[in-house]
Each structure stands twice: as C-alpha cells, then as structure tokens.
C-alpha cells in the first residue's frame, strides 16, 4: 500500500492545500507546532493509493510519495 512522507515538517506553512486535494482525506492537521508556529499537515496513514495529488498541490514541494 502506498504512503506519503512530509519531508520537512518545519517547512510546512499551513496552507493545507494537500488536505483538500487528497481524494481519501488521509492528511490531517498536526496538533504540534512546527518551528514557524504553524500546525503542519501530517499523513494519518490509511488507504493511500499513491495518486500524488497531495504532492502536486504542495507549494513547498515537501511531500514525497512512496509505493
């Protein structure tokens, strides 16, 4: 089963575009703050199809998709 990795959570600026672009709603907002004082997006596991929609829509280009 595919999965994604948010390479550097400190670079997430909290735009959450990945969350709305994931067809299976597998990305959540972390409850911890990153170095920017932003709650970064985080992969919550679950049935990921590896469609790369999240990675495509991430402005910071910090999501890697593995299968």
């Amino acid at each position: 089963m595919a999965k994604i990795k948010i390479k550097n959570k400190d670079r997430c600026k909290g735009c959450y575009l990945c969350i709305v672009n994931c067809p299976n709603n597998l990305i959540k907002i972390s409850d911890q703050l990153n170095i920017k004082g932003v709650k970064p997006a985080v992969f919550s596991g679950g049935k990921c199809s590896g469609c790369t929609m999240c990675a495509l829509s991430c402005p910071e280009c910090i999501i890697e998709v593995y299968r």
Binding site: A2, R11, K13, C15, P59, E64
Partner: peptide
C-alpha cells in the same frame, strides 16, 4: 511506480525553503 518514489522534488529546483507566502501559486 516500480521506482520507490512516485513523486519528488525536481533536480533543478534548489532544495531550499521558498520565501513565498503559504499557499502562494508562485511556489
């Protein structure tokens, strides 16, 4: 998909943080 990585940062995009605002289309 055979490759482990289905998506990663393009080589000619330096691996540095972009100064653009959150959600900016420029990035």
């Amino acid at each position: 998909a055979e490759e482990v990585l289905a998506f990663s940062r393009p080589k000619s995009l330096r691996d540095v943080e972009l100064h653009y605002c959150a959600g900016c289309g420029h990035s």
